[in-house]
Write a protein that binds this DNA or RNA. Structure first.
Lengths: 143, 143
DNA sequence: CTTGGGATTACAGATAGCCCACATGGTGTC
DNA sequence: GACACCATGTGGGCTATCTGTAATCCCAAG
């Protein structure tokens, strides 16, 4: 999914964590977006599955542990609330939904994301300039 | 510099590390770019100063320790080489310069950065759509 | 009663950032 | 002249944070 920056340039394209493999820091806005797009509370598991379809993860399921952790932290920050469901059949599970504050945060995230993208674009320009090449076309990114 | 996404929305805009305060993972392409743009080897100290001027850090000097650590790691990966200088006057210092492999890596980074920016843009679109608002103008990002 | 998948958490290794130590020289100041 | 203080330059070490592996718990199906 992510273009992998492999210093070795050999065939072994193992992703290099140090290079920002997943931009995992952005899992928060991804989760906020998923919750905002849903008209009903979602379970952690469902969020993991939908996250896989998000541009941020591009088909690869994110680590579930990380998602639960982020959800927990978001709940502590008042961005989401959860409710335990104990259905007659099946294990107890938690359903998460967005709070008003979470919605506001997502609104602010939209600006932040624009800044991130702009900054990355600037760095890209500088890199191309430093190499003395023209800024190439945007490659195919999806995978 | 970075637009800060502060869940609390009160006046206290302390940066929230979990939200990707600095995208510090991108310090590597930043350093590569600085070295590529220079026609002579640079000292770590100079790199720190130039990094502060880079879009990625927007005026704030990055942690010097982190830069030295990244340089060390990059040297182990063959992206840069260093030479100790022991001038008659002044302390011993190390001068870093890019290897061919480092240059190649930066070239690949250019594509990766484009993908990052594109993905973040997509997420932004989705977030706006989930909130039922139109994608707002890109705000002023520099700081 | 064992397999299997959903759902969650505990734990430990990897990372990143801050404070500070070491080394050297210039400048201010009492 | 002695001392403080700042700037260049490079790093060690501590701590907080982050992240992935593994384990746990629960229940249904076979």
């Amino acid at each position: 999914m992510w273009a992998i920056c492999n210093p070795k340039a050999d065939g072994d394209l193992k992703p290099c964590a140090a290079l920002g493999r997943t931009l995992s820091r952005l899992s928060q806005p991804t989760i906020l977006t998923i919750l905002a797009a849903s008209d009903e509370p979602l379970h952690g598991y469902v969020i993991v599955q939908r996250a896989a379809a998000s541009p941020m993860f591009g088909g690869t399921k994110p680590d579930a542990t990380g998602v639960y952790r982020t959800l927990k932290q978001m709940e502590e920050n008042g961005l989401v609330t959860s409710q335990w469901e104990t259905p007659r059949a099946g294990p107890a599970k938690r359903a998460f939904s967005l709070t008003t504050e979470g919605r506001d945060t997502l609104r602010r995230w939209i600006d932040s994301l624009a800044c991130y993208a702009a900054t990355i674009g600037e760095l890209r320009e500088e890199a191309a300039q430093a190499l003395g090449i023209e800024t190439p076309e945007v490659p195919v990114c999806g995978g």
